[in-house]
Structure formats: structure tokens, C-alpha cells
């Protein structure tokens, strides 16, 4: 039941591959066009953050079910520098790269569940879910 597919993020093109995979999985799982766009956008943000800040990492996409609810889970993991201040990166507009600083807070709003664990020098794991309503 637990289909899991993953994309290694190493080059910029892998960001495109990850979001295409995400859109396909979201479509297959039965999400409508707006949720497909939300999931695709969230994956794009997470994959780009891996590429920009950690150099490389992985996006995994998995179908999940919990107490009769069905959905999709995305795990973005890397062994990069980690995030020193988790509260700061969740603020709209906070960026260390001259970006819009929209990625992290945006993903949290686009998805239903969002969890970050990060340790400086070890890496970052972000887990986020979207439920079919």
C-alpha cells in the first residue's frame, strides 16, 4: 500500500523532475487541480531549498492513510548545513539568498501538516502532508 517514489536532488533539472513526479502522484491519488498545484509548488520550494542551501538531498513522495483519511506525504531530506533558527525561516520574507523568503512559510500554508527537524552540521528533514478532503 505504501508506494514511495523518490528523486535525488543534485542539479537544477532534478527540481523539475521532482515537481513533475509530485504532480503525477497527486493526480493519481485523486487530488483536484488546485491541490495538485499546491503540492507541485510545495515540492518545487523544498527541492529548490535543498539545491540552494544543502547542495544535494532527496525528495520522497508517498501515499499515506490515517484513520480513514487518505493523502500524500512529502519528505525533503538533506545532509547540508542545517537551519540554525527554525523560527526565523518560518517568517515571511526571511531569506539568506536574496529570495522572496516565501518558500518555507508558503509550504506550510499550502499543505495541511508541516514538520521541520534540523540540526546544524547534520542536515534538515522536512515532512509535509496533504489530505484528500
Amino acid at each position: 500500500m505504501n508506494f514511495r517514489s523518490s528523486v535525488e536532488i543534485i542539479t537544477e533539472w532534478d527540481i523539475v523532475a521532482a515537481r513533475q513526479l509530485g504532480r503525477n502522484e497527486a493526480k493519481k491519488a485523486g487530488f483536484g487541480t488546485v491541490d495538485q498545484a499546491r503540492i507541485t509548488t510545495a515540492i518545487s520550494e523544498l527541492a529548490r531549498n535543498i539545491y540552494l542551501y544543502a547542495g544535494k538531498g532527496k525528495i520522497e513522495i508517498e501515499r499515506v492513510s490515517e484513520g480513514g483519511a487518505f493523502g500524500i506525504k512529502i519528505i525533503a531530506s538533506d545532509e547540508g548545513p542545517g537551519i540554525p533558527d527554525l523560527r526565523k525561516v518560518m517568517e515571511d520574507g526571511f531569506s539568506t539568498s536574496g529570495g522572496l523568503g516565501a518558500g518555507m512559510p508558503g509550504v506550510k500554508r499550502l499543505m495541511d501538516e508541516f514538520k521541520v527537524s534540523s540540526e546544524p552540521g547534520v542536515g534538515t528533514i522536512i515532512t509535509t502532508k496533504k489530505w484528500l478532503h
Partner: peptide
């Protein structure tokens, strides 16, 4: 069909 923060 989608625009992320970079493209925006």
C-alpha cells in the same frame, strides 16, 4: 499550471 517563489 503552477508558479513557485522563484518564478514569481
Amino acid at each position: 499550471d503552477f508558479i513557485d517563489s522563484f518564478i514569481a
